[in-house]
């Protein structure tokens, strides 16, 4: 008697969202099963892997990442180089230099970098703000305008600034709005509802439901994603059917395991390996929980996670 299990195929499915334009455009979402449950039904679109660079160019990169960008001096150089790494589906540019509590670079300067990158590479783009609510309102508005027609994901619209980002990225310039909430299904849902009420098309929203590095309250991430996918698929909750994108890099590169020097922690061994494994293991876990795209930093992590996805889909 062979194994017979009930199929876990759902009648509802995750929204399909296409990012970028032309040959290199990517499509995420569309699945009607839980993550990688290919035995229930084919996965409509494999999850995608992005690589993150910042406006700061080489200055912002840890030593172990720098070596992959040898010969680059600007963010644009890095973008071109990053596009050639194995497994890279899209490029994410984090404008952390805009933070008023940090470098506080002027918006024009940052937007110029974006424009230059968009001109130099044909990969789909994700634009991440500097996390400061006021600055992001201005920065992401101008970024959306400057990249009009490129169909980029703008990360992110939060409860505090969803109106500005939603109106600018979603309405005025027809980009894809990344709705960011803090590991809570109800907040994620509420933000999607608010954005759609503002007039943003639900099919042009992707969610960042929040993340954490493995070991750092990651249980909340798992449960939030599990529940979001359950609501979207088994309850057919249209307000949660947006694909999920998770910026893993910005979580993992700040934790002790990925930062403590080898001199401080001799028994822990290679810092690069620690950072890469932290990134890989966190990314594998968010993918297993339902992320449709992950943003990573180290080329080796990108390659490995891309391979894992290929093996599973």
């Amino acid at each position: 008697m062979p194994f017979t299990g009930k199929s876990g195929k759902f009648s509802a499915k995750i929204n399909t969202v296409t990012v970028g334009t032309g040959d290199k455009a990517i499509t995420i979402g569309g699945e009607n099963v839980l993550p990688f449950y290919t035995f229930d039904d084919a996965i409509a679109n494999a999850p995608k892997v992005g690589i993150e660079i910042t406006d700061g160019g080489m200055d912002n990169e840890p030593e172990c990442v720098k070596k992959y960008y040898e010969g680059c001096s600007t963010a644009v150089d890095m973008a071109k180089k990053a596009a050639t790494f194995e497994g890279v589906d899209f490029l994410s540019i984090r404008l952390e230099g805009g933070d008023p509590n940090g470098e506080n670079k002027p918006t024009e300067e940052l937007v110029q970098i974006l424009k230059d990158i968009a001109d130099a590479v044909d990969l789909p783009l994700v634009v991440c703000g500097c996390k400061n609510v006021e600055k992001d309102g201005e920065l992401l508005d101008k970024a959306s305008s400057a990249l009009a027609g490129k169909n980029v994901i703008v990360l992110s619209a939060r409860e505090e600034d969803y109106k500005t980002i939603g109106a600018s990225a979603g309405l005025a310039y027809k980009q894809i709005v990344g709705a960011e909430s803090a590991v809570d299904i109800n907040l994620a849902k509420q933000l999607n509802v608010l954005l759609t009420q503002l007039g943003v098309n639900g099919q042009s929203i992707v969610m960042n439901v929040g993340s954490a590095a493995a070991g750092y309250g990651f249980e909340y991430v798992v449960s939030t994603m599990d529940r979001v996918k359950a609501a979207a698929l088994s309850q057919s909750d249209a307000t949660l059917q947006m694909p999920i994108i998770t910026p893993v890099a910005s979580e993992v590169w700040g934790v002790k395991e990925a930062m403590a020097s080898e001199a401080d922690m001799p028994e822990w061994g290679s810092l690069e390996e620690r950072a890469v494994d932290m990134e890989i293991e966190t990314a594998a876990a968010v993918l297993a929980s339902g992320s449709n795209a992950v943003i990573l930093r180290h080329p080796e992590s990108v390659k490995t996670i891309s391979q894992l996805i290929k093996e599973l889909v």
């Binding site: 305008s145 109106k163 500005t164 109106a167 600018s168 309405l171 005025a172």
Partner: peptide, 15 residues
């Protein structure tokens, strides 16, 4: 149109 887009965002947000 660019002026409308620019003014439209703060209009939508209520600014």
């Amino acid at each position: 149109d660019p002026v409308i887009r620019e003014l439209g965002v703060p209009l939508v947000t209520g600014d």
